[in-house]
């Protein structure tokens, strides 16, 4: 008995010591490894990218020289950069809009008790687990002119074949839709989590007060979904602005430069056009663009949430 008490006492003492050690400044040391990895693989490449943006490096030669702000000035006059910047915004904002509308709709539909609900949720979420390259290839096979699924199906009904990827506008819309459909499941899950966190008593009280379905949605569900909105919108916005894989596989940035995003154009400029310095300047701009949009979206959504409260 004495032994048991003694052992228990030592354990308690050890736990107290450990608790003390984990408290305060010492606990901060535990995230040092993660901090070092973050510095090595995120901060250092970022700073190196910024440094490169002031050079004329071709991406592989041991030689390069500093060119000051030339690359940034060149950005201002490059029509292709303007085009790809516009495309990037279309991908970012377009995909975000489509994913919010579809994601919220699906979440509302699948939040109800119904048969096959879990299966439907799983099926809608599954594409998010697939590599965007695979997704892009699948849709390429869907939209291609010869032997494309869409043209074959329309052909059964006497329709003419259409070169879907030849038109810049159509190709842009296709890229937005493919990206949105792939990740709509993510938005749906976020909204489902948001819906399930809304206490039933609010809805019940509103029903007792005679609120109809639209009023309950407008005045209870939507305001209480604000945190979910913020999360989903910011995630989708960042994903859309960084869009790369689907474009690379589906359209290759063409026709011409018509469907390039900044990400794909950076890749082409860095590796194919051998202008690593210039590509790095574009990368810095893309980084700042994402920062600005993310902060703006977060600020706007938080302000709205405060107003609702």
């Amino acid at each position: 008995m004495t032994t048991t008490l003694s052992t228990t006492g030592r354990r308690a003492s050890t736990r107290r010591r450990t608790d003390r050690r984990l408290g305060g400044r010492r606990a901060n040391l535990l995230y040092v490894p993660a901090l070092i990895l973050f510095a090595l693989f995120t901060v250092y490449p970022l700073l190196k990218g910024v440094e490169l943006s002031f050079t004329n490096w071709n991406g592989f030669s041991p030689r390069s020289s500093y060119v000051g702000f030339d690359n940034y000035l060149r950005l201002l006059h490059d029509a292709n950069v303007r085009k790809t910047l516009a495309n990037t915004l279309i991908y970012g904002v377009g995909s975000t809009l489509v994913q919010q509308i579809l994601g919220l709709g699906l979440a509302l539909a699948l939040d109800r008790a119904m048969r096959g609900r879990n299966l439907a949720r799983a099926i809608i979420y599954l594409p998010a687990l697939v590599s965007p390259v695979v997704m892009g290839t699948m849709y390429y096979l869907f939209f291609q002119y010869n032997n494309g699924v869409l043209n074959d199906v329309t052909g059964w009904f006497g329709g003419e074949k259409v070169a879907w990827l030849s038109s810049a506008n159509t190709a842009l819309i296709i890229v937005v839709m493919v990206n949105s459909l792939q990740f709509v499941g993510v938005s749906m899950i976020i909204y489902l989590a948001g819906l399930q966190s809304i206490p039933w008593m609010y809805t019940e009280a509103a029903m007792l007060d005679g609120a109809d379905a639209w009023q309950r949605f407008r005045y209870i569900t939507l305001p209480l979904l604000q945190p979910a909105f913020a999360t989903s919108i910011v995630l989708n916005l960042i994903g859309g602005l960084k869009l790369f894989d689907v474009i690379k596989v589906l359209t290759g940035g063409g026709p011409g430069y018509a469907t390039n995003s900044l990400s794909t154009f950076i890749s082409v400029t860095y590796f194919d056009a051998q202008s690593a310095g210039y590509a790095s300047a574009m990368g810095v701009v893309l980084f700042l663009l994402i920062v600005v949009f993310t902060i703006a979206a977060n600020t706007a959504l938080n302000r709205r949430r405060m107003e609702e409260m």
Binding site: Y140, F143, Q144, Y145, N146, G148, K161, A163, W164, L165, S166, A171, T251, G254, P255
Partner: peptide, 8 residues
């Protein structure tokens, strides 16, 4: 040019 130019 071939009609399937963009996807060939």
């Amino acid at each position: 040019f071939n009609v399937d130019y963009s996807s060939a």
